[in-house]
C-alpha cells in the first residue's frame, strides 16, 4: 500500500513511468475481470464491468486524487489488457479443440468446453480489429472498448473525450466494417 501511495504521488507529478507501474499493479484484477467476461459473455455485464474496472484501480486510490487524464488512460489500458487476455484464452480453447501437433502445450489455464462459433467469431473480430487499427485508429479504439472492454458508450465518450453521439456513430460504423470483414 505504501508503495502504491508513493507511486500515486509520482503519477500526480506527471511521471509516465509511475503511471505504467500503477496500471501494472491492477493487471491481475483485470485478468480476472477478462475471464469473468468470457464466462458471462457481453450480455447484461456492461455495468458490472465498468464497476469492476473502477474498483480494480480506484480501490487503491480515491477518485479525486487522480488526474482526469490518468483515469482516462487507465480505462483505455484496461480494455487493451482485457482484449489481450480474452484473445489468448480463446486461442487456447481453439487449439485445445483442434488438438494436434500445432498446439504448444502450456501450463496456462483457461480451457473449457464451449461453443465453437463463439470462439471463431471472437478471434475473427480481433483480427479484423487489427486491420481497422491501421485504417481508422479511433474506430478501432471504440470497438475495442465496447466489444472487449464492455464499456458503455458514455464511458467511452469520456475516455476518448468525444461526444456520446460520436461514439454511437463510430461504433455503428465500426460494426459495419467489421461485419464486412467477417463475411
Amino acid at each position: 500500500m505504501s508503495q502504491l501511495t508513493e507511486l500515486l504521488g509520482r503519477v500526480q507529478a506527471g511521471d509516465a513511468g509511475a503511471r505504467d507501474a500503477l496500471f501494472a499493479a491492477a493487471y491481475s484484477e483485470l485478468h480476472r475481470l477478462a475471464h469473468a467476461r468470457l464466462r458471462d459473455g457481453g450480455r447484461n455485464t456492461v455495468l458490472d464491468t465498468t464497476c469492476l474496472v473502477h474498483e480494480s484501480y480506484l480501490r487503491f486510490v480515491r477518485a479525486g486524487e487522480l488526474r482526469a487524464e490518468d483515469r482516462r488512460a487507465f480505462f483505455a489500458y484496461a480494455s487493451q489488457v482485457m482484449r489481450s487476455v480474452i484473445v489468448n484464452s480463446v486461442r487456447e480453447r481453439l487449439a485445445h479443440k483442434r488438438g494436434g501437433d500445432r498446439t504448444p502445450l502450456t501450463l496456462s489455464t483457461g480451457l473449457g468446453a464451449q461453443l465453437p462459433d463463439a470462439e471463431e467469431t471472437v478471434l475473427a473480430v480481433h483480427e479484423a480489429l487489427e486491420a481497422l487499427e491501421q485504417a481508422d485508429p479511433r474506430l478501432a479504439q471504440v470497438a475495442q472498448m465496447r466489444y472487449f472492454g464492455g464499456y458503455s458508450e458514455q464511458e467511452i465518450a469520456e475516455t476518448l473525450q468525444v461526444t456520446e453521439r460520436t461514439v454511437q456513430r463510430d461504433w455503428e460504423k465500426a460494426r459495419l466494417i467489421l461485419a464486412a470483414a467477417l463475411r
Partner: peptide, 30 residues
C-alpha cells in the same frame, strides 16, 4: 450489405454488439 442491410446483415450487426458467451472458462468444470 452495410447500407441496405437485410435480415441476415442486421443479425450480423447485432451479434457484434457484444462479446459472445463462451461458457465456463473454468477448466475444472469442463
Amino acid at each position: 450489405a452495410a447500407l441496405l442491410p437485410g435480415a441476415a446483415q442486421a443479425a450480423d450487426l447485432k451479434a457484434l454488439m457484444s462479446l459472445p458467451k463462451l461458457g465456463a472458462a473454468d477448466e475444472a468444470s469442463a
